[in-house]
Design a binder for these strands. Structure first.
Lengths: 201, 201
DNA sequence: GACAACCTACCTACTGGTAGGCAGACTAAA
DNA sequence: TTTAGTCTGCCTACCAGTAGGTAGGTTGTC
């Protein structure tokens, strides 16, 4: 069994998955309007019309790509919850995961952060998926902070929701700074410090 | 004298300034590839070719727009330094300035934050201007933190540079979160908390 | 023979950009 | 004071290329 029943990639054929993988890369590079079907066609070595066969419209393709990214994130966070007992360590692991991604440039930035920046120019169906990712992530961080607060490993400055919003903003901003500086290590510098501030004194 | 000698907008004719103003709006909405000369032409009520008369290529126009934004920021920060003696108050004023901008949607986001997100897809001349803005801002925040630290109004967790990077990331991330949530007040929630954390205990 | 995957060929609309011209304001020389 | 030259701002008309998307046909596999 190559793909489990709960695998969200299951409904996609191998070629469709390849298309989505490339879309992820192109999306991370220049956002929604930064690539075309022709670009993808060249990368996956089929004609433009074949991309349309898998994903009728660009909005469909990007929505699917973002939805998969969102799902992967949810699953990743869940498995992180299962793997680490300490909420503080979960946050560190989350940051470390992104630090490695950025270091390897795969992906060099969260596509949802990028799409959030250009949200008014993005099709509604994509935008709602992006908003969903932000809500998912905020909810996870807030719940992690609450758990850490109750077990004593994390401290809260304000309520968990506000502290979670600050932490999430630091992470997304760190991605922008790292990209602007052309220095992947800057992400970790910022993320590490942001996380340490949440550690109980 | 309508424009002073040091006014960076001086070299631009009224129409060119109008074009830049509209470019700012369009840029803030959807990034570099989110608008066209035709869009601007309609907004400023001239033909496309006339935009090319003022700014031969799109990269020229966007570079000029970002350079002006960068200059305005530098001047704004300098006048803020002059107006407020307390470094902590300077940071608060900076956040409040952006909170008001976002609340009024003018601009709803820092165009440099947006362009940083899609940096690989942006022409080199624009990218270097964006990088410059990040450097300017980081330098100002770091210097403000240092001053606040020496006068005792601000505390440092790490060195001023790292703390400045965290603060800057929070601000940029807050812009993304506010846009994603469609809630301008979220920016202030995050920015306020980020600033308070820097206050000396 | 149904269906998925892919193709060629094509479409319309729009992209950034150019060529060349024209009206009006400014300047300089006759 | 006329007049020629020049500059700015804007125009129409056009270009090649690309955008997203469609119609209809071929191939290969269950």
């Amino acid at each position: 069994m190559a793909t489990s029943r709960s695998d969200p990639q299951a409904p996609y054929s191998p070629k469709a998955q390849e298309i989505i993988a490339r879309t992820n890369e192109l999306l991370a590079s220049g956002g929604y309007n930064g690539f075309s079907y022709a670009d993808i066609a060249e990368l996956v070595d089929v004609r433009k019309a074949s991309i349309h066969h898998h994903f009728p419209a660009k909005a469909d393709l990007v929505k699917a790509t973002v939805a998969l990214h969102r799902d992967a994130t949810r699953r990743g966070l869940a498995s992180l919850d299962a793997a680490k007992a300490d909420p503080f360590e979960r946050l560190v692991a989350y940051c470390r995961y992104w630090a490695e991604c950025i270091e390897k440039s795969s992906p060099p930035i969260c596509i949802c952060a990028l799409l959030a920046a250009e949200l008014p120019a993005v099709p509604a169906e994509v935008a709602s998926e992006v908003r969903g990712h932000f809500e998912d992530l905020h909810a996870w961080i807030a719940s992690t902070l609450e758990q850490g607060h109750s077990t004593g490993s994390l401290r809260l400055t304000d309520d968990a929701s506000a502290d979670a919003a600050v932490f999430m903003a630091s992470i997304h901003g760190a991605m922008l700074s790292a990209r602007a500086a052309g220095d992947a290590s800057l992400f970790w510098t910022i993320a590490k410090l942001s996380t340490e501030r949440l550690k109980a004194a």
